[in-house]
Amino acid sequence: MALSRLAREFAAEINNHDWSDAPYRTDRAGHRRENDPNAGQRPPLGKVETDAVRMNVMWVVAQVLGHADPNLDEFEFAEACGVDTRTPSGRPRSGVISAGLRTDHDTGAYDVPGALAADDPNEDAYDRRPDRVATDAQRTRTWPADPKTRGFTTRRGQCVHSHEQCPKYRYGIASAERHGRRIHPIQWTTTGQAHAAGKAVCSFCWS
C-alpha cells in the first residue's frame, strides 16, 4: 500500500536531513554539512552512528504515523526515510524495523504516542474495550473440520492458536514484555466457539 502524503513528506524530510553531526550541531530542518560554513568545527559521526540516529528518528515518527493510520507499512516508510531494512545477511524486511515500534502484542495496533501501556492513565478504560475480532481477510482462512478442535485466544487477540508454543504467539509475548505491554491471559476454547466470536485461525497453527 502506498504511503500517505503525510508519511511521504515526513520520510522525505528525514531522508534529506544530514544526521552526521546531530549530537552537537543545532541547525535547521534540511541541514546539510556541505552547505554549512561551521560544519568543520567537529568531525562527523561515522556511517554506523549516523544510520543509528536516522533509524531512531524514523521510529519516533513511525510510531505516531502508525497510531494515526493502522495501514502504515513500516518497511516502506523506513526505506523512504533512507533506512536499510535488510537483515545482516541481506534478506528483505528485517524484524528489527518492527521491533522498534510499540504495538499491542495481540492486535498489532500501535501504542498511544508518548506513553507505554504500563504508564497509560487510561489503562482501566483500555481493559474495558470490547473483545477484538478478526479482519475480513483473516476470516477467509480455512478452519479445522471439527468445530470442537481445542485452541486458545485472548480478549484482544484476533486469532485462535492451537498451542502455547506457536511462534507467532510467542513473538507477540516477547514483544509485549520488551515494551512493557500488558499480557492478556489465555482463554481456552474450541475453534467453533472462536469462529462464532469473530476470531480467525492462526495461519501458523493451521496452515
Rank of each mutant, 00 (worst) to 15 (best):
M55S: 07
G66T: 02
D104H: 13
T103R: 15
V48N: 10
V60N: 10
R91I: 00
E123R: 05
P44V: 06
D69I: 12
D120E: 11
D84Q: 00
F77I: 10
I97F: 05
A99E: 08
T87L: 00
D84I: 01
E49G: 11
Y126S: 00
A137T: 09
Q41Y: 08
R33D: 02
V96C: 00
D131S: 12
M58F: 11
R93N: 14
A118T: 11
A137W: 07
D120Q: 06
R33I: 02
P92A: 04
V112K: 14
P37S: 09
D131L: 01
A117N: 08
C81A: 09
Q138C: 01
E34S: 09
V64K: 06
V48L: 07
T87E: 09
N38H: 14
V133C: 10
A52G: 14
D136V: 10
D124V: 12
N71F: 09
L45E: 10
C81R: 07
R129N: 13
P70R: 12
E74A: 03
A68G: 07
H105V: 01
E79A: 14
R102H: 09
H105T: 00
R102V: 13
V83H: 01
A80D: 09
V83P: 05
R129K: 15
L101P: 08
A29S: 10
A39K: 04
I97S: 10
S89N: 12
A62N: 04
T135C: 05
L45W: 13
M55G: 08
H31T: 07
I97V: 15
F75A: 03
D111Y: 11
S98V: 06
V64G: 00
G114R: 07
C81I: 09
A29V: 13
N71G: 13
Q138M: 12
P92I: 03
D73R: 09
S98A: 15
G30Y: 07
V112T: 14
T135G: 13
D104P: 02
A134D: 08
K47G: 03
Q41T: 12
E49T: 05
H105S: 09
P130H: 11
A62D: 04
T87V: 03
L72F: 12
V133I: 13
N122H: 05
H67M: 04
R132H: 06
R42V: 11
N122R: 09
V53I: 15
